[in-house]
Computed example of a mutant assay.
Amino acid sequence: MKPHRGAAPAAELSWVRSSYSGANGDCVEVAALPDGSRLLRDSKRPHSPAIAFGAGLFDAFIHSITTGGSAVR
């Protein structure tokens, strides 16, 4: 994981908010990049750097947080 500072500005991407987000504004958003990697950001700070995940690492991260397991395979 590393901060995203790629060629495409994060503001121009299509961001999807977590379906678990409540009305209190404490949300995470995910954007897909053309190479299959994903960006993750705090919706309250859309201009801050996003965390970049390679496609396989993002899948492992999601698996880890949904099962309580390790993200490292």
Rank of each mutant, 00 (worst) to 15 (best):
S14P: 00
E12G: 13
G22K: 10
S18H: 03
V16Q: 08
A10S: 14
L40A: 05
R73F: 06
R17G: 14
S48Y: 11
H63Y: 00
N24L: 09
T67Q: 06
P3L: 09
R41F: 10
S43Q: 02
G36F: 01
R45E: 07
S64G: 10
L13P: 07
R38D: 10
T66L: 11
A71F: 10
R41S: 03
Y20W: 14
S70Q: 13
V28N: 00
V30H: 01
H4N: 03
R5Y: 15
R45W: 04
D35Q: 06
S21A: 05
H4D: 08
A7E: 15
A11V: 12
G36N: 10
C27M: 01
A60E: 02
E12C: 12
F61L: 05
L57K: 10
L39S: 02
E29S: 03
H47V: 12
N24A: 08
E29G: 03
I62D: 00
D42Y: 09
S37C: 00
P49T: 10
G6R: 09
R45I: 07
K2R: 10
D59P: 05
G25I: 07
D59R: 05
I62T: 07
A32L: 14
C27F: 09
P34C: 10
K2S: 15
G68W: 08
G68S: 14
T67M: 01
S48R: 14
S70A: 13
Y20C: 00
L13I: 11
T67K: 02
L57W: 06
L33W: 06
R17Y: 02
R41G: 02
S70N: 11
S14K: 15
R5G: 12
S64L: 04
V30R: 06
A10D: 11
L57C: 07
V30G: 03
P9K: 11
F53G: 02
P9G: 10
V28D: 08
F58S: 01
G69R: 03
